[in-house]
């Protein structure tokens, strides 16, 4: 297992290198730069813009720029954001905890809801409750997250006033106190739920079908014949079998959250990596765009790696492939 993991980790290196080439040249190919569009004559002038372009090295040959960027990147220097005028690493460090918090909350909600609903549906298939849950599932899968997000802001934040409509925390509360964390949780609930809706629905569906299928298997009949109560059979035998494949989804989840966070953070004005990314693309903040893209690509890679490894643990045959 260790050897397999090691091989997969080493395999990521050329992949990351290729990604870095693509990321860099794509970023450079974006029209305009961070200084285009600055025509506020009260604030700046053409000489300053020309000087900054030279200073930032935008006039050097592209391969020189790439070499500089990639060597800096390897040594941990992600460059300086052209918009925020601060090291990109610090900038990302500022926003990343928010996104991680959002992602973890979303995962938690997803798994809790999916377990609860999936188990209910799986144990009592074709009942009213199951049909209701199925209805929720279909809606969860079909309603695009941005549509759901817009509806959620409209109803839960404005009409019902249950949740805040923007931000990640109430500034007046002192850091570190319990209220502080409650405020953060309060702010993150709505976006996290929208973010996790799709996977909640698909996991519920998966768990339900798996439970139904497993309940028809021989070992269940055997257990029943031996007089084990049905409840225990579900909790001990069936659930365990159904959870294992679900766990392997975790890796894919990480990859899916990456894309989802962009849309969700935009709708809820939740200051995380996704919002920073959109902002940076719109402002042509190359160092930030490149660093985030690299980071997200690496996360997808790692996510897939985790998925494969978990899968390898569950199903040893995979390791050979």
């Amino acid at each position: 297992m260790l050897k397999y993991t090691l091989r997969r980790v080493l395999g990521m290196i050329p992949m990351l290198f290729l990604v870095s080439v693509v990321v860099f040249f794509l970023a450079k190919a974006m029209p305009g730069d961070s200084l285009s569009g600055e025509i506020d004559p009260t604030n700046t002038n053409p000489e300053y813009i020309a000087e900054m372009r030279e200073k930032l090295g935008y006039n050097d040959p592209v391969y020189v720029q790439y070499y500089r960027w990639v060597t800096d990147f390897m040594s941990g220097d992600f460059g300086k954001s052209t918009r925020y005028k601060m090291p990109v690493a610090d900038l990302i460090g500022e926003k990343l905890p928010n996104t991680i918090f959002l992602a973890l909350t979303s995962l938690l909600i997803t798994y809790v809801l999916a377990f609860a609903m999936g188990m209910y549906s799986g144990r009592k298939p074709y009942t009213l409750g199951d049909n209701l849950i199925a209805g929720f599932n279909y809606a969860g899968i079909a309603i695009p997250s941005f549509v759901a997000g817009v509806f959620a802001v409209y109803f839960f934040a404005f009409k019902l006033n249950w949740f805040p409509f923007a931000g990640s925390v109430d500034i007046e509360i002192d850091k570190g106190t319990i209220e502080y964390w409650m405020s953060r949780i309060h702010h993150v609930m709505l976006p996290a739920f929208v973010l996790g809706m799709f996977s909640t629905a698909s996991y519920t569906q998966f768990l339900r079908n798996d439970l139904i299928e497993n309940s028809r298997k021989d070992f269940v009949r055997t257990a029943l014949a031996k007089g084990t109560p049905m409840g225990k059979i579900y909790n001990v035998h069936i659930l365990r079998n159904s959870i294992i494949p679900l766990v392997t989804f975790l890796g894919f989840d990480i990859a899916a959250l990456v894309g989802g966070a962009i849309i969700t953070e935009k709708i809820f004005t939740y200051p995380g990596i996704g919002l920073l990314f959109l902002d940076s693309v719109n402002n042509r903040d190359y160092p930030t765009v490149m660093a985030i893209t690299m980071m997200l690509s690496a996360m997808v890679l790692i996510g897939n790696l985790i998925a494969d490894i978990l899968y390898g643990i569950v199903d040893p045959r995979i390791r050979l492939g």
Binding site: P31, G32, S36, G37, E38, N282, R284
Partner: peptide, 8 residues
């Protein structure tokens, strides 16, 4: 025209 390109 995309705004960054536009002023260029």
């Amino acid at each position: 025209v995309e705004v960054n390109l536009y002023y260029d």
